[in-house]
């Protein structure tokens, strides 16, 4: 759920999130925000601090009295004090405008993973067809073949898995890697992807990752 009074931003945000397979609702009635929130019962709220009638921080305080819905504060005020204040009111994360859309998506994913136990990236095991991916151990296995992945390959593979059948841009992969403190360059990304492809081939999934020229990669 998006709580944001700037209509263009709210619409573009919702487009961004919908493109990434999230269901989005934009809050309409700021006067009675709390009731609308409870009616919708969202998995996560993106809350702008500067909203009409009641400010974001006050709304967050009211909300926290009754609910633990994850909240990411979104604000154009970039200051440690405000951040500390928001976190103390119970915000799960704090993002400052102007945000990088890829980073915003990563943060949303991270908060959801942290707060919701049955979210699909949680748990130590992901599957792709008959392949099992043990994130904790860093191995992929099918039947009795086991192959170890490097940290970078794991990051790339799990991102592709979470966005299966959808084109993933190099930029998204790059942002995810850097967000995990793996500061690779363009060459290294290409090398990592081709290594990952080879490993998938070894385990029997040749051509699992397809290159879409000028767009990115797709795992299908």
């Amino acid at each position: 759920m998006i709580i944001e009074d700037d209509e263009i931003i709210a619409n573009e945000l919702s487009k961004l999130l919908e493109n990434n397979n999230y269901e989005v609702i934009i809050l309409k009635n700021f006067k009675d925000a709390l009731r609308e929130i409870f009616e919708v019962a969202p998995d996560l709220i993106l809350l702008d601090i500067n909203i009409p009638f009641i400010n974001g921080e006050a709304l967050l305080q009211d909300l926290r009295k009754e609910s633990n819905i994850p909240v990411i504060m979104v604000t154009s005020i970039n200051s440690e004090t405000d951040e500390a204040l928001s976190i103390s009111y119970g915000a799960d994360d704090y993002i400052t405008k102007p945000y990088n859309p890829n980073i915003l998506l990563l943060r949303i994913g991270a908060v959801l993973r942290r707060t919701k136990t049955n979210y699909n990236t949680n748990g130590n095991e992901l599957t792709y067809k008959e392949l099992k991916f043990d994130y904790q151990k860093g191995i992929i296995k099918r039947d009795d073949i086991e192959i170890e992945l490097t940290k970078n390959e794991m990051i790339i593979f799990s991102y592709l898995l979470n966005h299966q059948n959808k084109i993933v841009t190099r930029e998204e992969l790059m942002t995810t890697l850097w967000d995990n403190s793996e500061y690779v360059n363009e060459n290294a990304l290409t090398v990592n992807i081709s290594r990952l492809r080879n490993k998938l081939k070894e385990i029997g999934y040749e051509d699992a990752i397809d290159t879409r020229k000028g767009l990115g990669y797709i795992l299908s």
Partner: peptide, 18 residues
């Protein structure tokens, strides 16, 4: 003013991404 100006900047960042 800076906070105000950041709003259209965010809008642009989102639009350019979408």
């Amino acid at each position: 003013w800076i906070h105000e100006v950041k709003i259209p900047l965010s809008t642009l960042a989102l639009i350019s991404n979408n």
